[in-house]
């Protein structure tokens, strides 16, 4: 490419800006590592899984209770919201009359924009007392699952919707021309064609659920323990960071950064595999 002087200068400035933007992610990684380094120097990684409990003041760093709470709440939320999210997307694309579909989609978009702290507040003031009537104390793993499910449902519905939109209309038409019923078309033609896109959107939602802080912090009860039932209070990794950062010092603070590092690795794994699936579905369509 041949560029004039002005263009070359501009290009240089732009490259600098882009470099800064791209460096943010490296900077985050560097700071997470350097802040957690003090504790990693004299506490082996294994101890984060094998210590007797999470008592940073007494040099005990077991994060497994928090890890199990994070994973269980994410899993529960996915189990609830995946079928509902996919059904919502199918509803807007193939079942609802156009006007209704537009309204429904607008509702879902509206909900996707509601901040997590508001979901948390609603969970705390409305949902937790309801769950508490079933089994006290109300702020529990179940409440966390329900709130998380509500939060990621719009994400799943919207991303699955765009995955369905990417399926060529010709598939639908030619299947219909064969006299297949609507459900048969969806089950045998549409869903398999959109399979990669749907998987990708569920993974993306899982990443969001794992990383979610405020809503879970407000409704899960925040007791550090392996949950023995759905009604037990739990504390997730993210909630633990948010709760203890304000007073943590020294090794304790560093241990929280280790938890952050673990969280980031989990989310990145999910997001990058989601990206992989998305790309595969794109390849299919181009083909």
């Amino acid at each position: 490419m041949s560029l004039s002087h002005t263009d070359q200068n501009l290009s240089l400035i732009l490259q600098l800006c882009a470099l800064i933007a791209a460096a943010v992610v490296l900077l985050i990684l560097v700071f997470l590592l350097s802040e957690s380094w003090p504790v990693l120097q004299h506490v082996s990684v294994w101890r984060f899984f094998s210590d007797d409990a999470w008592h940073p003041a007494q040099d005990l760093y077991n994060i497994t209770p928090m890890l199990s709470a994070t994973l269980l709440s994410t899993l529960g939320a996915l189990l609830l919201s995946t079928p509902l999210g996919i059904a919502s997307a199918l509803f807007t694309r193939y079942y609802a009359p156009p006007a209704l579909a537009a309204w429904y989609r607008r509702l879902i978009e509206l909900l996707a924009g509601i901040p997590s702290v508001v979901y948390g507040l609603w969970g705390l003031t409305t949902l937790a007392p309801l769950v508490g009537q079933l089994h006290p104390p109300g702020v529990s793993l179940l409440t966390a699952i329900l709130v998380l499910a509500l939060m990621i449902l719009p994400t799943i519905a919207l991303t699955v919707d765009s995955a369905l939109r990417a399926v060529p209309v010709a598939y639908h038409h030619s299947a219909a021309a064969l006299g297949l019923s609507r459900w048969a078309i969806i089950k045998n033609i549409i869903l398999p064609a959109a399979h990669s896109g749907i998987t990708s959107s569920v993974m993306l939602a899982a990443g969001r659920a794992i990383g979610e802080t405020m809503a879970v912090l407000m409704v899960a009860g925040n007791v550090v323990q392996h949950p023995h039932s759905l009604f037990a209070s739990v504390r997730t990794l993210t909630a633990n960071i948010a709760l203890e950062m304000s007073y943590a010092m020294g090794d304790h603070r560093a241990a929280l950064f280790v938890a952050g590092l673990a969280l980031m690795l989990m989310v990145l794994l999910l997001v990058s595999s989601a990206e992989l699936f998305k790309r595969r579905s794109l390849c299919l369509q181009i083909h």
Binding site: F31, L32, E35, G211, I241, A242, M245, V267
Partner: peptide, 25 residues
């Protein structure tokens, strides 16, 4: 490609991590 990948990763990072990073940096 490098810039786009970095941004993909950045968009996946949970907000609490940004909190940790912002506090430290």
């Amino acid at each position: 490609q490098f810039v786009e990948r970095s941004l993909d990763v950045l968009s996946g990072i949970p907000s609490i991590i940004f909190g940790l990073f912002g506090n430290a940096f």
